[in-house]
């Protein structure tokens, strides 16, 4: 180890590069960064859970009686849907975070390092999954307090949360791509919600589609959000078929297969 001292008495020590870490190790480091963000920016958890709590309470007590006869009956229908909706909406924040990061020099540093190029995004996903699990747990707890009964028990809840993570993963790529394409975080949010609101409301998340016009029913039937909500109801409440779960997983799967390479291409385009 050679040392050279500069005028200020600061010693610059030459340090060699250790053995190159694996792609997984790189990704986990970025996951650790996401966890640190929770520690340093706890207010993001507030954004994360307040909207779904509000939605759950408002829909249950304001519309519940009119839609399903009683608030408790409606909750039985609505709670699995609000879980899907929450994951979809929370993905928007992840895209905003990425857009903010890209606006600074931080990603230039990451890009000039000899690491797995997708690692920063894998790390974002780790943060997303944690967020979805936290938000999901809070909503489920509130649901249970209000009288929601998951008939399938603990196994059903575990399976449901597994589906939730898969949905979040697939949705995450959409907003990572938006975050890469759009350089203003607020525009990411506007575009994100413009795209998500019709998708979430024109689905079976809040009401059965029977009273909707035929053309809308046709859309609701193939809307991936509907497919996800249906599978979630089945997993938590009982009666889920393999076909339903498979259909719910289709959109996340397609999104990952198409958008992960797109992400890499957009990111490395220089």
């Amino acid at each position: 180890m050679s040392r050279a001292t500069n005028g200020s008495g600061v010693a610059i020590t030459r340090v060699e590069r250790p053995a190159r870490p694996s792609a997984v190790s790189n990704a986990l480091v970025f996951g650790w960064r996401a966890v640190l963000k929770f520690k340093h920016v706890p207010e993001q958890l507030f954004d994360l859970v307040m909207t779904p709590i509000m939605f759950t309470l408002l829909f249950t007590f304001v519309f519940g009686g009119a839609l399903a006869g009683s608030a408790t009956d409606y909750l039985q229908y609505f709670l699995p849907g609000i879980l899907v909706q929450t994951v979809a909406f929370n993905s928007v924040y992840s895209g905003m975070g990425l857009s903010t990061d890209l606006g600074k020099g931080l990603f230039d540093r990451f890009r000039s390092l000899p690491i797995w190029p997708l690692a920063p995004f894998a790390g974002l996903m780790v943060g997303d999954v944690l967020r979805h699990l936290i938000a999901g747990a809070i909503i489920l707890t509130i649901g249970l307090l209000l009288g929601y009964r998951p008939e399938n028990g603990v196994l059903g809840i575990v399976a449901g949360f597994g589906l939730l993570v898969a949905i979040g993963f697939g949705m995450g790529w959409v907003f990572i791509v938006l975050g890469l394409l759009i350089r203003t975080p607020t525009t990411v949010m506007t575009v994100g919600f413009t795209f998500l609101f019709p998708l979430v409301f024109a689905s079976n998340v809040m009401v059965e589609p029977e009273t909707m016009p035929g053309w809308l029913q046709a859309f609701v039937a193939v809307n991936p959000i509907s497919l996800m909500a249906t599978a979630m109801r089945g997993l938590l409440g009982g009666g889920a078929t393999a076909a339903e779960v498979g259909l719910a997983l289709l959109a996340p799967l397609v999104s990952t297969v198409v958008l992960a390479p797109t992400t890499l291409w957009l990111y490395l385009r220089r």
Binding site: R17, R33, H40, V41, R109, S112, L113
Partner: peptide
């Protein structure tokens, strides 16, 4: 990338982290 490092014009640091 293994041989270089770059300090850009704008701080390439995570502001939220220590």
């Amino acid at each position: 990338r293994g041989a270089i490092a770059m300090t850009g014009q704008f701080a390439s640091l995570d502001e939220d982290l220590t």
